[in-house]
Nucleic acid binder design. Structure first.
Length: 688
RNA sequence: UGGGGCGUCGUCCAAGGGUAGGACAUCAGACUUUGACUCUGAGUAUCGUGGUUCGAAUCCACGCGCCCCAGCCA
């Protein structure tokens, strides 16, 4: 069974005998940066094809440009490919090892009259190339005799000419609609030190010339690359045909794109060079080394790549899918531990002073074979500050005055008192425990809603915990800032790293090693960072657990009355008065999508008494422009900073020539108009 | 003188003339010694308009939208 269109091609080829049943793929990175999750898709695809069809998979460095390539990158790439499980079985190749063969082939094309040495400089060549809709002109050097070309080319190789002075070009068609066919450059003069060849060469093959040659020499069957090379396929084919050599098939697929993520080596390099992150392996980076340091597993990455599929559609994958794949694997494999990030001291007033009990706790409820461990329990504990509320709401299942909860694997405890510091902050809780509930069950069958994690205060290990959030705050980084240089930098998330210096951990976490992964119960998955030392542990949060309570809180904070009104009523009454919507079908009521927004700016619309032009943040990165007929009731300055409810899925429409994308919900009319308030929620929150 | 590619739930991916299906997300519920996991249920999609056909996401025509290409980068 084929899983995607490429496998269909492979299976058809196997059926027809096109490659005699062989399947041979490759991953051909240029060593000019670290590998990222987009490369993972390609590696998993190529290596997976080889594995599935009993074929082979090569790792090959496409090192044809000494100006950009470094040994450091080669080393990291080899390491990352292996980590991901790309099994090249020792078939590690370098394009630079084929430079001799490629040179010989180039001379053949020259002798055939299919390539020529051109003296045009870069500017002139651009001029001669024409434009997208204008054909190019032949170079004045196009008709040099093969013998002259051969002589010139040999002298290029011998280093007689300055960089940029001459190129070797394929003689194809300056009139082609495909610009790649307008006599592309095969060799350019570069006088730089090559990471493997040293100063042996001063002419270097261009991608188009080199790549097919490399594939051919390695007897690749299916040469898989990304969509932007589709325009280059005619060239790939042309070179191999002219040479009359073994000719693999190039197949293109859509590269991976992720929301909230930047995946281009150029931009990632910028983040590293300008120190926006701590390095290529910063845990916030989408690099394989960054994700590994953060605690992502290669199994999760492979599962993710398998799940998202392979097509030619340029799709953007919700980064939540990646996080989900990580959670799924870690849930099944990670040892559970208890850790308190934001400690609040609890004293069990009826627990004997000085007593310590060892409580047995499961290492992984998902995997009974993981066994149990002992965790010390004593009179003074730490719990998570968030797990106590002075005035808890009904839906809060955790501790509050008079409330009883279970301490995981230990006892039921009831809060009897709390102590506040001078600043009004709660500093300590007094609780009583029920000795009969040891292990976490009460003999009388009484139930508690909440189970909480805890750490014995005198036994706790203090450690640093690094909480990572997405590096970018916008779904499509940079999209809202087109035109500026490096626009994605504008969307950097200022809160992408939070360092907790005073986390209290169960004692077993005091002696763990970098790379080990755990679930801190109720918090998320964590791994020991490379910076960790004995006595100074450092943990990275890989990914948080899903948290229904966070959502619940969001719902609670919103005022109930207006938003809880039936949707039909909203659609009937609370519409924008100045511009009533077109009649919609009854069934359309349920299609209305409401989100909370914050007004960033407001101004009057010229020649319109009732209209205001608003800029509303809906958590989408780019604020939306919404024209609303509420000028009679509100002055522009009254609106800035206010939270509003916006119908977000309306077709954009033009009001007084301004495109309005969405509608503000309001009730009443004229000066008595009231805006519907979504409460104090983040822009972009769903309103139901 | 332009050339090449792509359009299916909110997001990804299936269905290749025969009941538009799955995953993620969302919502509702069950379970729970992790508000996790697991389980159950719900809603939402074939870019448009014509045509061919008993029957079209699929074939045809004409539109529309988006992406890539004018490096001596890959």
């Amino acid at each position: 069974m084929s899983d995607n269109f490429i496998e269909e091609i492979v299976e058809a080829d196997n059926t027809s005998g096109k490659w005699n049943g062989r399947v041979h793929t490759r991953f051909p990175p240029e060593p000019n940066g670290y590998l990222h999750v987009g490369h993972a898709k390609s590696i998993v695809l190529n290596a997976g094809l080889a594995r599935k069809y009993g074929g082979k998979f090569n790792l090959r460095f496409d090192d044809t440009n000494p100006a950009k390539e470094e040994q450091e990158y080669v080393d990291s790439i080899i390491n990352d490919v292996k980590w991901l499980g790309g099994d090249f079985e020792g078939r590690l190749f370098y394009a630079s090892d084929y430079f001799g063969q490629m040179y010989t082939w180039a001379e053949q094309l020259i002798e055939k009259g299919k390539a020529y040495v051109c003296d045009l400089n870069a500017d002139e060549m651009r001029d001669y190339r024409g434009t997208l809709d204008k054909p190019g002109r032949n170079s004045p050097f196009r008709d040099r005799a093969p013998a002259e070309n051969l002589d010139l080319f040999r002298r290029m190789k011998a280093g007689e000419f300055a960089p940029g002075a001459k190129t070797l070009r394929a003689k194809i068609d300056m009139g082609s609609g495909n610009i790649n066919l307008r006599d592309p450059v095969m060799y350019r003069i570069i006088k730089e030190h090559h990471h493997r060849q040293g100063d042996t060469w001063c002419i270097y093959p261009s991608y188009d010339w080199a790549h097919g040659n490399e594939d051919s020499l390695e007897q690749i069957t299916h040469s898989i690359c990304t969509l932007e090379f589709e325009n280059h396929r005619p060239l790939y084919d042309w070179f191999l045909n002219e040479l009359g050599v073994y000719h693999p098939q190039q197949i293109e697929f859509a590269k991976l794109q992720l929301t909230y993520t930047v995946l281009s080596k150029r931009n990632l390099l910028h983040l590293v060079k300008e120190k926006y992150v701590r390095g290529w392996d910063d845990p916030r980076m989408p690099t394989l080394s960054g994700m590994r340091r953060r605690g992502y597993t290669s199994e999760a990455l492979r599962a993710f790549c398998d799940e998202i599929g392979v097509t030619k559609n340029e799709s953007v994958i919700d980064v939540g899918r990646l996080e989900n794949a990580v959670r799924t694997h870690l849930n099944a494999t990670a040892t559970r531990k208890m850790a308190v990030l934001n400690p609040l001291k609890v004293v069990l007033t009826n627990y004997p002073e000085g007593q310590v009990e060892q409580m047995e706790v499961a290492n992984n409820p998902e995997d009974p074979a993981a066994g149990v461990r002992s965790v010390p329990f004593s009179r003074e504990l730490y719990i998570e500050r968030d797990d106590f509320m002075e005035e808890p709401s009904k839906k809060f299942f955790r501790l509050g005055p008079g409330r009883e909860v279970r301490l995981r694997g230990a006892y039921f405890v009831t809060c009897t008192n709390f102590i506040k510091g001078a600043d009004g902050q709660v500093t300590e809780l007094h609780c009583t425990y029920d000795p009969a509930s040891k292990g976490g069950n009460s003999p009388d069958g009484r139930k508690v809603k909440g189970t909480m994690h805890w750490v014995s205060a005198p036994h706790a290990v203090t450690a640093e915990v690094r909480l990572f959030d997405r590096l970018f705050a916008a779904e499509f980084p940079g999209k809202a800032h087109e035109g500026v240089e490096m626009p994605f930098l504008k969307d950097l998330n200022a809160k992408s790293l939070e360092v907790v210096g005073n986390a209290k951990l169960e004692p077993s976490l005091g002696h763990v090693n970098p790379g080990e992964r755990f679930q801190f119960e109720r918090l998320g998955y964590f791994t020991v960072d490379l910076d960790a030392r004995v006595g100074a542990q450092v943990f990275n949060r890989t990914v948080a657990l899903k948290d229904a309570w966070v959502k619940e809180q969001g719902a609670e904070e919103a005022p109930a009355a207006p938003v809880a009104a039936p949707k039909a009523a909203k659609a009937e009454k609370k519409v924008e008065p100045a511009a009533p919507p077109a009649e919609i079908e009854f069934g359309d009521f349920t299609k209305v999508q409401l989100k909370a927004g914050r007004v960033l700016a407001a101004e009057k619309v010229e020649k319109a008494d009732k209209l205001l032009k608003l800029s509303v943040d809906l958590g989408e990165g780019t604020p939306r422009t919404i024209v609303s007929g509420i000028a009679e009731a509100f002055a522009p300055e009254q609106l800035v900073g206010r939270n509003v409810v916006v119908v977000v899925n309306l077709k954009p429409r033009a009001l007084k020539g301004i495109e309005s994308r969405g509608m503000i919900l309001a009730a009443g009319s004229g000066k008595g108009l009231q805006l519907i308030n979504p409460g104090d929620v983040a822009p972009g929150s769903d309103v139901k």
